[in-house]
Nucleic acid binder design. Structure first.
Length: 587
RNA sequence: GCUGCUGUAGCUCAGUGGUAGAGCACUUCCUUGGUAAGGAAGAGGUCAUGGGUUCAAGUCCCAUCAGCAGCUCCA
């Protein structure tokens, strides 16, 4: 797979983030010049560049970006020197007169902190720095986009206009970054979804609901099979639970109380309110509670590809990555406190197998007890957190500490995966829960004959099929590995009279449950090759006179133009082997 | 939800208040081609939807729906 990452930086006179912060200042000064009535918000450097927030009367347009860039270059030439001066709080207030947001920002700075301004030309900004020394150094920058952003990220506050830009120490690095952005755009799952006929959504059906087309259906089914194979081996049993349930169930679970803004309105069935489930746990818990449980049957590992529906605000919906109806690869483990560490270790191992099965690198984060509003005894938290740590140790899994990042009902391990473009996504999660066993009064009879409380572990590895497959489309750039590719083999006759031979080959492949497209329709061979290539079919088999006469095929692998002539049986062996191993090799 | 932008053929996009366009894809016919586009013809549209302004609206205005860039929130 092509490893496309951001180009490494050459030796830098200042850190890249410092440069970007300084260019943000430069941009703000240009905006001040062009729009004298502007009020300034914050303007930090961020992962791939910088932004600055402005309160302007008129909305900015893309044309303004060009004007601002031009003004920036002028200012950088004319008054390049960045000068720091320290001031008292009183002086700062005076100098920020009329700048409401800056004055508010000033109040956020602790009393004992030394205040400073950075100035170039006649523009200055309250800022602790650091900055580069002069703005006329060699570097390259670009203003990228305009967007709304709430002052201090709070939607109760007024909305400011944010300009995003980026900067690098040389033109080559900026160009490389722009190339990377282009690649990100090319691989966008929404774009590929249309081009490859993978999925759609419809105004008729409503925003945020995904329609999986047949080709993506194949991909999903393969992923589900892979998932079930590993889960079955890991001792999970399948369960199936209803999409809707009586509202009272969600009152017991607490979802109604804590999660109602995400839940769809009740529907009336026999004068009783029912709700569409936003999570699968209550259903699994009802199965657990269906009869008494003994310590002898724990741990119980129950898995369900459970479809849930959640209300998401209209502006948050995004392709397959953020939707209103989705299928979680959910499972719940009911176990004794003593079993917890082993169970978590088992999940960690499963996460590893599944994520690396798709070629993802990952990082795991241990999220511990939040400072307030938690439930459960301190001792339970300690034991569970220790179990998570022990499990990670057993699996030799390094954990990054996310202090206080746990849920209110228990500590958790979250995973972030890194895709082929170096972007991070959060999908997998393993969560201990002290809350639901309590609310549903879950028990098991221990060896001493006493009723005890089991621990509940929620875990999802793919997260949701929608989000995971969306990420996967971008990760592979539409080039699915053989085992889950929608069409695995394209068979192409050179002339019409070779069609029969090709159909014979296709049939033998189909008998092995391979997904085959026998392109025997009337069209020129070159056109079919182009089409198969465009559809990212892993293998093309091309057959003409020579192949028909000796039972061979001319194999062309995705991404190459070379042909390998081989006996059909040898090809069959090759393709079956690759499929069985769920190989990620680009064939 | 909020700010800004967008909605014309299946896709990518032209279109000056006055007769609805191109390329690709599709259909039919011709073409028998050895590794990325053979040729010709044809069909395809309530210009997102609903109001309004106007002699006249794809074009201007408003609303709704949907999408895009973000903010906030999240699997």
């Amino acid at each position: 797979m092509s490893e496309l990452k951001e180009a490494p930086q050459a030796v830098e006179p200042f850190p890249l983030s410092t440069l970007r912060h300084s260019v943000a200042h430069l941009m703000a000064s240009a905006v001040a010049k062009l729009f004298p009535e502007v009020k300034f918000g914050f303007g930090p450097s961020i992962e791939h560049g910088f932004y600055y927030d402005f309160d302007l009367v008129e909305p900015l347009t893309d044309k303004d970006l060009k004007r601002i860039e031009k003004e920036m270059r002028r200012i950088a030439r004319k008054t390049p020197e960045l000068v720091r001066h320290e001031v008292s709080r009183e002086e700062a207030r005076e100098q920020l007169a009329g700048q409401d947001y800056k004055l508010e920002a000033l109040e956020l700075i602790p009393e004992d902190e030394q205040l400073s301004f950075y100035a170039h030309g006649d523009w200055q900004d309250l800022c602790q720095g650091p900055h580069i020394d002069t703005l006329d150094r060699d570097y390259a920058f670009k203003l990228q986009s305009i967007a709304g952003a709430y002052w201090r990220g709070d939607e109760a506050n007024p909305m400011l206009q944010r300009i995003y830009g980026t900067a690098f120490w040389n033109k080559e690095a900026l160009t490389a970054h722009m190339e990377w952005l282009k690649e990100v755009q090319l691989r966008d799952h929404r774009k590929l979804g249309v081009e490859m006929d993978l999925f759609s959504h419809h105004a008729e059906a409503g925003s945020g609901f995904i329609f999986w087309h047949p080709d993506l259906g194949c991909v999903r089914r393969e992923i589900e099979n892979f998932w079930w194979d590993l889960h079955t081996r890991a001792g999970y049993k399948p369960v199936y639970t209803p999409l809707i349930s009586r509202e009272s169930l969600f009152a017991v679970s607490g979802h109604l109380e804590n999660y109602s803004e995400m839940m769809y309105a009740p529907m009336d069935i026999d004068e009783m309110p029912y709700r569409v489930k936003p999570m699968n746990c209550p259903g699994h818990i009802l199965i657990y509670k269906n009869r008494g449980r003994s310590y002898r049957e724990l741990p119980l590992r129950w898995a369900e590809l459970g479809t849930v529906h959640r209300y998401e605000r209209s502006g948050t919906i995004h392709g397959m990555l953020r939707v209103r109806g989705f299928t979680q690869d959910d499972a719940h483990i009911f176990c004794t406190p003593d079993q917890l560490a082993d169970e978590i270790a088992g999940v960690c191992s499963l996460v590893h197998q599944i994520l690396t099965g798709f070629g993802f690198e990952y990082t795991a984060y241990l999220a511990t007890r939040p400072e307030k509003d938690t439930i459960g005894e301190a001792e339970s938290w300690e034991r569970a957190t220790a179990a998570l740590k022990d499990a990670a140790k057993m699996q030799k899994l390094p954990l990054v500490l996310d202090e206080g990042g746990g849920a209110f009902y228990g500590p958790k391990i979250d995973y972030k995966i890194k895709d082929a473009l170096g972007r991070e996504w959060q999908n997998s999660t393993i969560q201990c829960d002290f809350n639901l066993p309590e609310r549903f009064d879950l028990t098991y009879v221990d060896s001493d004959g006493k009723k005890k409380r089991p621990i509940l572990v929620h875990r999802a590895i793919l997260g949701s099929l929608e989000r995971f497959v969306g990420v996967l489309i971008e990760h592979f750039g539409g080039k699915f590995p053989l085992w889950c590719a929608p069409t695995q083999v394209a068979v192409i006759p050179i002339r019409e009279e070779h069609g029969e031979y090709c159909r014979g080959l296709a049939e033998r492949l189909e008998q092995e449950l391979l997904r085959v497209d026998c392109m025997s329709q009337e069209a020129h061979m070159n056109k079919k090759i182009k089409e198969a290539q465009a559809r990212q079919v892993p293998f093309m088999l091309i057959a003409g006179e020579r192949e028909c006469s000796d039972g061979s095929v001319a194999l062309r692998r995705r991404g190459t133009r070379e042909q390998e002539v081989m006996a059909f049986d040898d090809f069959l062996e090759l393709v079956l082997k690759l499929r069985a191993s769920r190989s990620l090799e680009l064939v």
